[in-house]
Design a binder for these strands. Structure first.
Lengths: 177, 177
DNA sequence: CGAGTTGGTTTTCTTATTGAACCTGCGTTA
DNA sequence: TAACGCAGGTTCAATAAGAAAACCAACTCG
């Protein structure tokens, strides 16, 4: 199966992976969230070869994850900035960082600490249900065919429930329609 | 730069990417969370070639993300199951699914809906701060060097804060030490 | 004029992925 | 008992992608 096939699949993972499912792309995005914006800076930090970097940046721009905007004229120079679509990748990047912190950290501990400006504390990211606010675990989630489903594939069966107190829904900036 | 180099980097993204930063691996993990466990079933659902599937499963087992356990003897047959380390990838997979749902869904809508068994509702995953419970956004997070940091790289500068009410910390199963 | 900076492209070589076929151990059917 | 089927792989030749190093172009600065 080829890359391009993925985009057409009726699966959100496949579609997302067709955009960011490449190790250099993920490392580029990490640096984007650390305010890196220029070709040379990406290249120096990542150690990626220039042709690959150019091709990945081109693809991210084509997919509207990054925008190539001039930061000066004469000589005309561009920088790469996250679009809203790109900024929305933040939970993915944070989830990746957190898993690495928990499972891949050396004995010296985690390389980076995250401080939440709003509350001032060092934190971990936690993924919760937008409806009840409880932390998510795989066994607590059932999957159903949605309107965009294709052939009867990608379908599981599951069980197990819990009785937990209800909270009020979290207003996510981009919640369920 | 080579794959193996990534594992040694003082960056949790790089380390995580050295394990799961491959499109086939991510699609395999998607199916793992949909209760797919056998070689033939992965192969049929993913359309990946058999040598690649074998090599990816081998790597995931080596990295303790999957465990290869016999489900019958005579003939001896194995299945691949998520370990706890693998189950902990759930937020990453859910974040990927959600981004695909929001940004890559076709006009028919999302392919899959997620129901939270605990509360019964169809939900979206939301990533929050473990300390105050507020949804995370990139601009609200400052990064600092942790104990495992290496050379003075991967360091940003940031600003902007907000005054938000405080909640009590979320007890994540694997929170900040 | 010559050197430096930024943001790339070109070229050549090496590695990874694909597609198809083949292998193994065992059970089942004829 | 021979033939076939199945699950779970491996082997092999052809092709695509990635790495390393060099090169290019537009402009500025001294």
């Amino acid at each position: 199966m080829r890359w391009n096939k993925l985009e057409g699949e009726a699966c959100s993972v496949a579609r997302t992976v067709s955009v960011i499912g490449d190790r250099w792309t993920l490392l580029i995005l990490r640096d984007c969230f650390l305010r890196v914006r220029r070709f040379e800076e990406f290249q120096a930090r990542l150690g990626v070869t220039r042709p690959i970097l150019a091709s990945r940046l081109r693809k991210l721009v084509k997919d509207f994850v990054l925008a190539k905007v001039p930061y000066q004229e004469r000589p005309l120079r561009y920088e790469y900035r996250l679009t809203q679509k790109g900024l929305d990748l933040y939970p993915i990047v944070m989830a990746i960082v957190h898993w690495g912190d928990v499972h891949m950290a050396g004995k010296k501990g985690r390389p980076l600490l995250h401080q939440h400006v709003s509350c001032g504390k060092t934190f971990d990211p936690v993924m919760i249900c937008s409806q009840c606010g409880e932390p998510l675990s795989p066994r607590q989630v059932h999957v159903h065919r949605g309107p965009g489903a294709a052939s009867p594939r990608h379908m599981p069966a599951d069980a197990a429930a819990g009785d937990r107190k209800q909270r009020r829904p979290v207003r996510s900036s981009r919640a369920h329609p």
